[in-house]
Design a protein around this nucleic acid. Structure first.
Lengths: 343, 343
DNA sequence: TTGTAGGCGTTATCAG
DNA sequence: CTGATAACGCCTACAA
């Protein structure tokens, strides 16, 4: 930070007006004013190379116009989502800063506390690593919080929650596989402790139950070892009793890894095994064969979240008339069929 | 921002001391003090739920302890890099905020201006979309700037530049392919206008020249159409005159796409075509066959950059004795051999 | 239409 | 060791 900072005081002196006038001109406030006065100020500011000091402004206005977003990481889905959030926030006049926690409770806590101390106007958290009670203790009385994919979280902790409908997506995926002729369908997940995995299992199970004995199902999780390995073996065995076999992977990354195993085992996709993932990342269209996936409506998610936060701040732009402005919303994914599940 | 904020004034009243004392104990400043006074303050702060207001502190200290990082996006390499930067910054007592520009000059400019107005203590930019003159005009007199992968940029604009040695990596890749028996080697790039692509071409060409007629080379760019398509056709033709053929892709993403095309065309990797990318992203180890790549020393890059910035701020932690603390550094990549280039 | 003055919440300098 | 008090740079009634 420069020591010889130019302030509105200098600009005022240079322009021969008062600091209030400078402030008004520079912030384009609609106070009546002689055009020449404004011009004088503009020119003086430009000549001096004046740059607004937001920290002073924030302190004075008790508002920072800054938002914070906490994510487990920047890669894949999260990165895409962060960009959508950034854009949406800006469209509403806010600046969004993004941080990664690496799913580490300590890093998460540090970021939370720092942002609260910075008095951000709002906070978005995706996949919290900390326990609800700890979050509550930290966040209480601070900036409002909007959560993502927070099923089973206490209502009063956040002003809203925006959840992706992973359960619905899983169900749709199962249907898709069965419609394509799969008599056996596997879900290859990660840890059963992960909430996003639980949601997928839930939808998978629900649809399996609905389908009854039209289809045999199996669920694989990482607690029992390498899921890619397991599902490949399982699929190979099931194949012996008649195919094709369907596999729903936790996400596209896992789908890609499974694809590698299948090819390595000499199993043909989609002829013998049909495979699909979730997230629709770029490589799903690049892989060979291309991977069917469930895509995520990033813009919608972001718009929903920011709208809720702003409406909480009392800045709802009506007109839009989005669903109820607090509580929990569920956002559906969309099936994007590709070669890996073709008939 | 809450209206009924608890300030050190209330804490001071509650503890029955002055605000100066509160400030001292809360910031653990090493002023001599009665332990009981400190305890009283701590307790009062806890009881009242006091939370430090960094914006006021920043204004007063003329220092924010905040750093900003601008990236084209959050995905892949950039995301990994951002995480390393965040961690490194924290290790040095700073908080790093990350922003994506989408390689859009306007978004980039907005972020730059916002961060400058926020008086961040330092700024990191990776792959600027704006022209040097514009950046100079905006940044002048503001927070110090460290650039990444900024070849041919004016010296005085930034306090330092940390560049990846893509030229060297390309050269090493060519050598690797030739050693593995490739008599024809292609570089599949993107736009020739992209600086990071130019660097790769440079190294590729240099090594090709050095090798003389030991090897035939070809360079492909997106200006002439789909590079994945082109390189696949070219490789198929070259194959007719004897293989194996080597392909160095612009990055792992392109390598994965090319891999898909090759497999689709029935070309065997690595038997007929040997393929390698740059960045060593996660999927390079997941693809089938696994992809050879050049990995990036994220931590080193981050440490170098932050160290330079801090040393510019006069906070160099000596001892370390890193190379000269300003100007340009070049960071080498490291070959990570995998199946796709095996003999 | 423009100027004055009192915050905003902390830090830091000096006396006591 | 502790407590006033003047910055820090800007905003915003309220006055002129």
């Amino acid at each position: 930070m420069n020591n010889k900072q130019i302030t509105i005081v200098e600009v005022a002196r240079e322009a021969g007006v008062s600091i209030a006038t400078v402030s008004n001109v520079l912030n384009k406030r609609n106070v009546p004013m002689a055009p020449e006065t404004a011009a004088k100020v503009e020119e003086a500011a430009a000549r001096l190379g004046y740059r607004r000091n937001t920290v002073a402004a924030s302190l004075s206005r008790r508002k920072t116009n800054e938002l914070g977003l906490l994510l487990p990481g920047f890669g894949g889905y999260y990165g895409q989502f962060a960009e959508a959030m950034e854009l949406t926030a800006h469209r509403h006049g806010y600046h969004l800063s993004v941080y990664a926690t690496g799913s580490d409770p300590e890093r998460e806590q540090r970021h939370l506390e720092t942002l609260l101390e910075r008095r951000v106007d709002g906070l978005f958290c995706h996949g919290m690593a900390m326990k609800p009670e700890s979050v509550g203790r930290i966040v209480r009385g601070g900036s409002p919080l909007v959560l993502f994919n927070a099923w089973e979280w206490p209502e009063d902790l956040a002003v809203a929650a925006v959840n992706l409908d992973f359960a619905g997506a899983s169900a749709e995926a199962v249907r898709h596989l069965v419609e394509r002729g799969c008599r056996t369908v596997y879900y290859a997940g990660t840890s059963k402790a992960l909430m996003i995995d639980r949601q997928r299992r839930l939808g998978f199970r629900r649809e399996a139950d609905r389908l009854g004995d039209q289809v045999r199902t199996g669920m694989i999780h990482s607690e029992a070892g390498d899921p890619e390995e397991q599902v490949t073996t399982a699929a190979a065995e099931a194949l012996a009793e008649g195919g094709p076999v369907g596999i729903l992977a936790f996400d596209d990354r896992m789908a890609l890894r499974i694809l590698g195993r299948l090819l390595q085992a000499g199993i043909r996709v989609p002829e013998e095994v049909k495979l699909l993932g979730i997230n629709n990342e770029w490589f799903s269209a690049a892989a060979y064969p291309t991977l069917t996936s469930m895509s995520i409506p990033y813009e919608k998610q972001a718009e929903l979240a920011i709208h809720r936060l702003l409406s909480h701040l009392g800045e709802a732009e009506d007109g839009k008339d989005l669903p109820q402005a607090k509580g929990e919303v569920t956002v559906p994914l969309e099936l994007t069929p590709r070669r890996s599940t073709e008939a």
